[in-house]
Design a protein around this nucleic acid. Structure first.
Length: 559
RNA sequence: GGGACUGUGGGGUAGCUUGGUCCAUCCUUCGGGGUUCGGGACUCCGAGACGCCAGUUCAAAUCUGGCCAGUCCCA
């Protein structure tokens, strides 16, 4: 491509961008995710290089700018004749492209699997997932839940027992209809969730009030035939899924379990440095078969939200059709009250999407495949000293229990920095001639903060440094979270905002739908907790003007 | 479910309108050698692609049809 081919077809975007950027020097093209590249081609062909030109960005643009003398010095010193590396799309204006670029470039997924919506978990992505699971297991088991695993296939006869449930999932289940060449007498569904697999068995397990509560969870894959566009982690057809199912003696105990699940989720979210809102879904949007549903939502920018978890209270809605009853202390037969708690692998995507920045992914320490990356910086005049010290540092931290990657690759140090920033490693330790002489390491965290650490007591200093990183990451996330909401007082200014809207709603379905129409999205429901930001006094419902029953509700465009 | 569009080495692209100038170009990637190494190194050698199947034609990446895969839009 050439610059002239692009400038022959100017556009406002191209013109405004190039106006603020020098057009000389090495140029590069934005990294494009594999998935959208095909669709981009139509546009590109039509525009004859326009789009490509739009992406011609001088390489030094990555740096703080020409006013930084240190950077200038570096760029003068460093040979710059080479091919420039791709840029990430702008997170603020091209969120989806940015996200797809990050999850691929950070090597969390390989999207080339030839079936829509099925995700390949790469070694790096899988490592993050295992740490993710570890946090979920730790927190749910702390509340007295035990692991089980039920089969992937569910007979149609069981699947159809709860009417609302089957209605809600009918359109998105995969059917298994054949075994070899034989048509199956009873068709099987690939579980989209496991109520209907578990509950016939729960009916056998629960006989007495002494069997209660029954709190079990499993981490398995579920399948949902998504008709919408799929995105790695955020919307897959094969979903990595955590689900807890419980049976309680009565409604109050079930309500208490919901509370307990929410508390456990708060701890999980804390580990991921992820702020969220617990929102009770409106009647028309609750889980099929539930008495009520609480969604756990994270704002993702552009007025969008991502549901990263759910807690449901089923009352007796499932225990009756599935016959889960017990003999109470007084000798009477009662149906159990049930709850479920679900978290999908999209939470992992949410972490990448929420914390990531223009340099790539940012993992909180708990999730990072490598918490610490050690990079030796060899040079002609320092011999093996840096490499030796780097090895010593890595050894010590591994013995200390840290997940460490000693990067002895052939790339130059700078290339490694970029790579590990893209991959989201929380802490980088650089060891060169200076450090070898002084017995120190140069520590740089993923938020760009630098510090020299002495080798003596390094383990403790690294622990502190990582804790401080997580704290700062949480703080940054809280700031972004609070910025993501704004109150809307009128129906006609709901649309067009980049904020998730906080509105007054009388609670009636008719008004709810009017609000949804106005924002071209969903009314997520009413927050379970006081909003974590200032709101004015509640006014009349923005749809009908009634003050009676008005409460704050959240309206957004779910991702 | 309806419609539109797109498939070129591991990745990104050019070429397609108007078939031949293309045993397909450039960047990146990968393997090997050398010089390097404090923010995306250089250099030399090498590897690697027209989604699949038919058709039209003297000749197909290019035109036609079917299939497969993908993307977007609408319901």
């Amino acid at each position: 491509m050439s610059e002239s081919s692009g400038s022959a077809v100017p556009s406002l975007t191209a013109a405004s961008r190039t106006a603020e950027r020098p057009t000389t020097g090495p140029v590069t093209e934005a990294f494009r995710p594999r998935s959208s590249s095909r669709s981009m081609q139509t546009t590109r062909r039509m525009a004859r290089g326009l789009c490509a030109f739009d992406r011609l960005i001088p390489r030094l643009d990555l740096d703080p700018g020409p006013h930084d003398p240190a950077r200038e010095a570096i760029s003068r010193r460093t040979p710059r004749g080479g091919a420039p590396m791709p840029e990430l799309p702008d997170k603020a204006t091209e969120f989806i492209d940015w996200y797809l670029a990050v999850v691929e470039a950070a090597d969390l997924t390989d999207k080339r699997y030839p079936v829509k919506g099925l995700n390949v978990w790469t070694p790096y992505g899988m490592a993050a997932r295992r740490h993710f699971d570890r946090v979920l297991v730790r927190e749910i088991e702390a509340t007295g839940s035990r692991a089980v695993e039920f089969p992937t296939l569910i007979p149609e006869t069981e699947f159809a027992k709860e009417k609302e449930h089957i209605k809600g999932f009918d359109a998105q289940v995969y059917w298994v209809t054949k075994g070899g060449a034989t048509d199956l007498d009873t068709k099987l569904v690939l579980r989209p969730t496991s109520e209907t697999a578990m509950y016939p068995i729960f009916a056998l397990w629960v006989r007495s009030h002494r069997d209660l509560p029954l709190n079990v969870y499993q981490i398995v894959n579920v399948f949902r035939y998504e008709t919408k566009t799929t995105r790695p982690f955020l919307r897959d057809r094969e979903i990595h899924f955590f689900e807890e199912h419980t049976c309680q003696a009565n409604e109050e105990h079930a309500t208490e379990r919901v509370r307990s699940n929410r508390a456990a989720f708060a701890k999980m979210a804390h580990a991921f440095a992820l702020p969220y809102l617990a929102i009770r879904r409106p009647e028309w949007d609750k889980f099929p078969g539930a008495y009520y549903s609480i969604g756990l939502d994270v704002p993702m920018g552009e007025a969008r939200t991502l549901q990263i978890g759910t807690v449901h209270h089923y009352r007796e809605n499932f225990s009756r059709p599935y016959g889960i009853q017990f003999e109470d202390a007084d000798g009477s037969q009662r149906f159990v009250h049930q709850t479920t708690f679900g978290i999908s692998g999209r939470l992992l995507g949410a972490v990448v999407a929420f914390h990531g920045d223009q340099r790539g992914a940012v993992f909180p320490t708990e999730l990072a495949p490598y918490e610490v990356v050690v990079i030796p910086i060899p040079s002609a005049d320092s011999g093996d000293a840096p490499d030796g010290l780097a090895g010593e540092v890595a050894d010590r931290l591994v013995r200390h229990g840290r997940r460490v990657r000693l990067d002895r690759g052939e790339e130059r140090p700078g290339a490694k920095y970029y790579h590990w920033e893209l991959a989201g490693a929380p802490l980088r330790l650089e060891v060169g001639r200076r450090e070898a002489e002084q017995r120190t390491v140069h520590a740089v965290d993923r938020l760009g903060r630098k510090e020299s650490l002495p080798i003596e007591g390094l383990e403790r200093r690294v622990d502190e440094r990582l804790a401080e990183f997580d704290r700062a990451l949480s703080e940054r996330a809280r700031g972004a979270f609070q910025e993501a909401f704004s109150v809307a007082l009128r129906l006609d200014n709901l649309a067009g905002s980049t904020k998730v809207r906080v509105v007054s709603w009388c609670g009636r379905e008719e008004c709810g739908h009017r609000i949804e129409q106005a924002i071209d999205g969903s009314l997520l429901g009413t927050p379970e907790d006081p909003l974590p930001f200032a709101t004015p006094e509640i006014g009349p419902c923005i749809a009908c003007g009634t003050i009676e029953g008005a409460r704050w509700a959240i309206a957004a465009r779910p991702l």
